[in-house]
């Protein structure tokens, strides 16, 4: 544009999408919906050694209105499913969902009468993490993959809302 030539290094130009996505991906506020064993590994991820703060995702918010990344960590039973759905609905756009662990992803080893066989039957999921429970490194990898997904989004185009019956 030529504006840099006049003002020097004090400004730089970029695309709006790139700016918004950059700020979104580096300040993900997670809502840890921790129900079972995965929540303990999530605690370890937040803890001293793995330190989720390096990825800008340390500001835990247990209120769905304030957070934009829902981490479902643990088995979801049929009794819990409406609560999860409600919490997802209460989150403001943009919002992303990480399904942490086998139980949240597919029911895992709990193929039994009270468990929901995967949270993707009720809410859309962006990143799945395998493992029972996943190691903290796996969760960190999932968050980095989510950052890649966020980088490709556009503010002008509405987010592709998955329709779930």
């Amino acid at each position: 544009m030529g504006i840099e030539e006049k003002l020097g290094d004090s400004i730089f130009t970029t695309k709006l999408d790139a700016l918004v996505n950059w700020s979104r991906k580096n300040s993900l506020w997670p809502l840890p919906f921790g129900t079972a064993c995965c929540a303990i590994e999530f605690m370890a991820t937040v803890g001293t050694r793995f330190d989720l703060a390096r990825f800008g995702a340390e500001a835990m918010r247990f209120s769905p209105r304030q957070s934009d990344m829902l981490i479902v960590a643990g088995t979801i039973s049929n009794k819990m499913a409406p609560v999860l759905k409600k919490i997802y609905d209460q989150m403001a756009e943009p919002k992303w969902v990480v399904s942490m662990g086998s139980c949240a992803t597919s029911g895992g080893i709990f193929d039994s009468y009270p468990t929901l066989q995967g949270i993707d039957t009720i809410i859309p999921v962006d990143v799945y993490v395998t493992g029972c429970p996943p190691r903290p490194e796996a969760l960190i990898d999932a968050i980095m993959q989510l950052q890649e997904i966020i980088k490709q989004e556009s503010v002008r185009r509405p987010r592709k809302a998955m329709s779930i019956k």
Binding site: N78, K79, A81, P82, K85, K86, D111, S112, Y113, P114, L116, Q117, T121, I122
Partner: peptide, 30 residues
Amino acid sequence: LMSEDFEGHPLRKDFPVRGTTAPEQRYAPW
């Protein structure tokens, strides 16, 4: 332990381990 609208008593021997309803019908929408 179960929600109040659950039908059946799970630990009876005539109750199947995967429940009496199909997995996709187990969750009643909110």
